[in-house]
Design a binder for these strands. Structure first.
Lengths: 193, 193
DNA sequence: AATTATGTTGGACATATGTCTAAATATGTA
DNA sequence: TACATATTTAGACATATGTCCAACATAATT
């Protein structure tokens, strides 16, 4: 990202960042991410291309910023006080709630953007890194000779897999079934905690 | 892919497909995938751009074709006779051998292409689908109320995670450690087979 | 109110993408 | 070898990308 988010907020930046991210998501409700061009984006929200490139390297950069904004709504800081053993469960519940709340928008977007496309790929990667970070954030080091970063990634992969089945499959599974799946897939690890 | 691989082979196509894929990999030893352009690729292997677009939609399409060619070297058909319970192990051993054999080339490429870049993303996605297909290819249906496709994906994710630690980390793990990790992460599932 | 610093804008630029032709050329087969 | 067929090729085209700069507008400071 070209724009430095850590510096003092100002009206300019807030308006512009909001405009670009909102417009991107409006467009994603209408067509696949692959077909969205910077030109079109700028026309839609009435900003010149130069402004776009003042803030973002490219359209992937904007997407990354969008995920960041959304993830702020999930109050990540609150996870930090939870026990490792609870984290998977709580993380699942919170993410589930979020997707459930936004189900209509999500469905609309996913009707143009399939699960293997660039949009989903980008979201998955972002979620993976975020969840892993949350899982990693305890002083574990190595457990049964297994590096904890590996375990954290494994948790993260699994959580993501389950959420995919809850929301992005043709035949989705219920919340109850999902909990059972988590238990089954992470069974061993949970017990030894 | 624009070119129909299923039709009778001919010299034209063989030469051209080989030239483009080899040249792409030569370039990847020198720079990140993100910086490779179709123009450059065509100049390097002395084909006009029009020829490239006779065969491929775009450069991602060529990459997909490369993975396909490589995976032929792994003799996927031979897995089909194995028991499900053996598959994870055997798949791991074979993939490990392949990466070990190509270690120099792999390292050279990875020195320009980091694990989160488009190249690695594309390979991961391809491997995921392939491994899942192999794991799925037995008449399991549902197991403990868990859809088998989910379990297959879980296996696939895990195998990939371990291989990443064997070859693409700064501090890699040994083959022996890797086997232990697989056991630990997939413990429950294996036992109930 | 005048001045300075900071960010925005329009337009031009070089380069890349992907499509489309008609003409040239290589291919497999009879 | 000669031929019909399939493929390649050069070049033009419309459009997209990302960078740059000078002119401009806005916000903060004096």
């Amino acid at each position: 990202m070209k724009y430095d988010l850590s510096k003092k907020t100002n009206r300019f930046a807030e308006r512009t960042l909001a405009a670009f991210s909102e417009t991107l998501f409006t467009l994603l409700e209408q067509k696949p991410f692959e077909e969205v061009t910077v030109n079109e984006l700028c026309e839609k929200c009435n900003y010149p291309r130069a402004t776009f490139y003042n803030y973002f390297q490219d359209i992937f950069d904007l997407l990354e910023y969008c995920w960041q904004s959304i993830s702020k709504e999930l109050h990540i800081a609150e996870y930090k006080e939870l026990e490792t053993s609870e984290r998977t469960q709580v993380l699942f519940e919170r993410l589930y709630s979020y997707f459930e709340k936004e189900e209509n928008k999500v469905n609309q977007i996913m009707s143009h953007n399939d699960i293997d496309g660039l949009l989903a790929q980008s979201l998955k990667r972002y979620m993976l890194l975020q969840i892993r970070e949350i899982m990693m954030d305890c002083p574990h080091g190595i457990k049964n000779d297994i590096p904890f970063e590996m375990i954290a990634t494994h948790y993260s992969n699994t959580l993501q897999l389950i959420l995919e089945w809850c929301f992005f499959k043709k035949e989705t599974i219920s919340k109850k079934e999902a909990r059972k799946c988590i238990n089954y897939l992470l069974g061993t690890l949970e017990k030894e905690d």
